[in-house]
Write a protein that binds this DNA or RNA. Structure first.
Lengths: 148, 148
DNA sequence: GCCATATAGTACCATATTAGTCCTGTTTCA
DNA sequence: TGAAACAGGACTAATATGGTACTATATGGC
């Protein structure tokens, strides 16, 4: 568990696909075919990505989408953020007052710190890196913890 | 988003509470009161934790639960794992064959690497650390990424 | 100017997951 | 032997998610 949502998953796939042709304007239809996903789903994802400025949309005939930045400058965190909102492991990591137990719990500061660390990790993974398989030889991601 | 489930959240709270009295055997009822949670919920969580060996249960009158190890030796990852199963950001990070798009996707190796990194981070946060508020001065968690 | 194409926004429904509760059975202690 | 307490599983209700559809708006070509 600790899953990203399916929509987010699709968003990454679509962004990878878009990133393959940085200059071209691709329609939602074309992207759906290339991604092996349904058009309405791809469409929904693209709207969210456009609203957050990760892709630029072109309306009308011959319209479509293209990435606004080189894939090396787009992070996985941004894509997750566009679809799901802020990366936070618990309600209370987002902001104060969201959890009714806040005054008796005391875990908030730790959850905030953990969430921030995970967010930072996702920020350091670019779309360009996602586009090519991780080599087995490559050292894995390392996440420094509370004491680091 | 990227949330842990509420049940997992409760599990951490309950474990923190149990960890405060390492020797004592506390009933689900007592833990529910101390945690400000409902008994059935606390009960459910404790059963899962017991099944995974994180707490030892004692049945019968004066029964209850106690932690099986010092809190410094119990990781947040273990608790998440007990309630939610393996830490994985996507279906495909768990094992091959879970995602129908596997042969056309190519993102699997990267998701596995990212999931592993997040899991490792959670393994490095102990219940003892969760029990006391993170000091603001404390450097945050850092998660090294694909290139690190 | 008009029509075809394509995205924007929103609202909706169906389904899956999660949370929460309850019941029945078993164990232990007094 | 009875009360206290956990084990396991089944069930219900609430929520979240995924997926779809509809209307409006913009663009480009004939």
């Amino acid at each position: 568990m600790l899953r990203i949502s399916k929509l987010t998953d699709y968003a990454i796939v679509v962004m990878v696909e878009l990133g393959e042709s940085p200059g071209a304007v691709l329609s939602a239809q074309a992207l759906a075919e290339r991604s092996h996903l349904e058009l309405p789903t791809v469409s929904k994802v693209l709207k969210l990505l456009a609203r957050h400025g990760l892709v630029r949309s072109y309306r009308g005939a011959h319209g479509g989408y293209r990435v606004t930045r080189p894939t090396a400058e787009i992070s996985v965190a941004e894509i997750i953020g566009a679809i799901e909102g802020p990366i936070a492991m618990t309600e209370c990591s987002v902001e104060v007052g969201l959890c009714s137990q806040e005054h008796v719990c005391g875990l908030r500061s730790n959850w905030q710190r953990i969430s921030a660390a995970v967010a930072r990790a996702m920020e350091e993974v670019s779309l360009a890196e996602m586009s090519r398989p991780a080599r087995p030889s490559e050292p894995g991601l390392r996440i420094a913890t509370l004491n680091a």
